[in-house]
Amino acid sequence: MQFRYLGNSGLKISEIIYGNWLTHGSQVENDAAKACVRAALDAGITSFDTADVYANTAAESVLGEALAGERRESLEIFTKVYWPTGPKGHNDAGLSRKHIMESINGSLRRLKTDYVDLYQAHRYDIETPLEETMQAFADVVRQGKALYIGVSEWTADQIRAGQAIARELGVPLISNQPQYSMLWRVIEGEVVPACREQGLSQIVWSPIAQGVLTGKYLPGQPVPAGSRATDAKGGAQTIARFMNDDLLTRVQNLKPIADELGITMAQLAIAWVLSNDNVAGAIVGASRPEQVTSNVAAVGVTLDDSVLAAIDSTLGDIVQRDPSLTAKSSPATRPA
């Protein structure tokens, strides 16, 4: 495993981060989930990402159980707040002071820890004053319940505005967690430059595009049984944007590039996001321990300019680059 600093901070995280969105408490039984966490630890992963909304808080509980007994100081545990949780009442969502303060306490109980290393705003809350949100996050840090703060899927302007307040409060933002892959590059035009300027780095989710970049989905063929594309609990919906024959055909054409390097297509996809120097780590999930072990092998793979150019040429215009899609990932009103 290799490690990178997270933003302009002294915190180092593992380049591969184990995440449990759509798996723990949902797609994967608890014993299998714990086996995947064990495989992550054995592979040298020290950073673990979750959120209170995943499986309506169950994912945090599963991760807390799986990490019980590990030396806390040797881990970096991240979680997030924003989306509706619990009974989903009128104050059970968003980034109000009330919801943030109550949510961090719930997350700590479920994760069985006194603090998280990184507490993240899971989206931007248009209905709460930004000053209220940032003051609440700063207070969470001052109370010792989180060591650092970050955001997820904020626009460049939102990051700049949030960072200005955070710096005044003495608790700067150090990270952004966006979707990023060979197929989804919407952060490159605006968000990444803003983060470089403001001292944040990226913790990217879906570097394998929900499994599409593994090459297991074939054009004109039924989706594999048991794959994410068949999951009615959310997996099929999240992967739908990539499930067309033109895109799947071009993804298949990446295989000779991976073969030439002696790596899998999934490893190529992870190495590609890690080649961006503003990316501190790539979040990977798993339903089987061997998936974790395989993904970690992407660490240390260097893609030279000719390989990067070949990837761009192969994928062509199916790559999504529209920066306005970041703003569209946050609801126009607070979710209920």
Rank of each mutant, 00 (worst) to 15 (best):
Q210H: 15
V186A: 14
T214N: 03
P172C: 08
I165P: 09
T264F: 07
D157R: 10
V171W: 02
G235R: 04
R196V: 03
P222L: 10
E197K: 11
L261T: 05
N176D: 15
S227N: 10
V223T: 14
G220H: 09
E260K: 15
E168V: 05
S227E: 04
E260T: 11
Q210P: 01
A258Y: 04
G189M: 08
D259Y: 02
I203A: 06
L183E: 02
E168H: 07
E153P: 13
Y217L: 05
S227V: 03
I203Q: 14
L173C: 11
L183N: 03
V186W: 00
P172V: 10
S227Y: 09
S152Q: 10
R160T: 09
S227D: 05
R160E: 09
Q252I: 06
P224K: 05
L173F: 14
N244E: 13
R250G: 06
E260H: 13
A240Y: 09
G162Y: 03
V212N: 00
W154V: 11
I165G: 11
S201A: 01
T230E: 15
I165A: 04
Q163A: 08
D231N: 15
Q210I: 03
S175E: 09
T230L: 13
I165W: 12
S206I: 03
A225V: 08
I208E: 10
R167Y: 06
G189V: 00
G211W: 07
Q252P: 01
W184A: 02
A236I: 04
P178N: 13
D231E: 14
Q237E: 05
I239W: 00
M243L: 15
L254M: 12
A240Q: 15
R160M: 12
M182C: 00
Q198S: 14
K255L: 07
L200V: 11
D245K: 12
N253E: 14
A156E: 07
M243G: 10
V204R: 05
I239G: 00
L173Y: 09
Q237G: 03
A229S: 15
G220T: 08
P178F: 02
G170W: 08
L183V: 11
D245V: 12
S152W: 12
W154T: 13
I203W: 09
S227A: 04
N244C: 06
G199I: 01
V223I: 06
P222H: 13
V171R: 01
G220I: 03
K233V: 02
G220C: 11
E197V: 01
A209S: 08
G262M: 09
L218Y: 04
V192K: 10
I257L: 05
I165R: 10
S152A: 08
Y180H: 02
P172Q: 07
G220N: 11
S206L: 02
A229N: 08
L261F: 13
D245I: 06
W205P: 00
Q163N: 13
T214A: 02
